[in-house]
Simulated scan of single mutants.
Amino acid sequence: MLHSAHFSTLVSLDRQFRALDDQKPLLTLDGWKIGGTLPARDIRLSELADLLRGRRVDPQTKDAVWAELVRCAHSEGRGQRWTLGSIGVMLPALRRAVRRITADSRADSGDVESEVVVGFLEALKAVAPETRGLSTLLPRMAYQRALATLPRVERDQDRSFTGRSVPLTRYGHVDLVLSRAVDDGVLTPLDAEVIGRSRIEQLHLSVVATDLRLSYEDCVQRSRAAEKRLAAYLGYRSAS
Results as ranks from 00 to 15, higher is better:
3 H>M: 02
4 S>E: 01
4 S>D: 01
6 H>L: 01
7 F>P: 00
23 Q>L: 13
24 K>W: 14
25 P>T: 08
27 L>G: 04
27 L>D: 00
28 T>S: 12
29 L>C: 11
33 K>I: 10
38 L>N: 05
40 A>L: 03
42 D>S: 15
43 I>E: 03
45 L>S: 08
45 L>E: 06
47 E>H: 14
54 G>A: 08
58 D>V: 03
59 P>Y: 02
69 L>M: 10
79 G>M: 14
80 Q>W: 09
81 R>V: 11
84 L>Y: 12
90 M>F: 10
91 L>W: 09
92 P>F: 07
95 R>F: 04
99 R>V: 13
101 I>L: 13
105 S>I: 07
105 S>W: 14
108 D>N: 11
112 V>I: 11
121 L>Y: 03
122 E>F: 02
122 E>Q: 09
126 A>E: 00
128 A>Y: 05
132 R>A: 02
145 R>I: 01
148 A>S: 04
152 R>D: 05
154 E>C: 09
155 R>L: 04
156 D>Q: 09
157 Q>S: 11
160 S>K: 02
161 F>E: 08
162 T>M: 10
162 T>F: 13
167 P>C: 06
170 R>Y: 00
172 G>I: 14
180 R>G: 04
180 R>A: 11
187 L>Y: 03
192 A>E: 04
193 E>K: 09
193 E>N: 11
209 A>M: 10
218 D>V: 13
222 R>E: 05
231 A>H: 11
233 Y>A: 05
237 R>Q: 15
240 S>V: 05
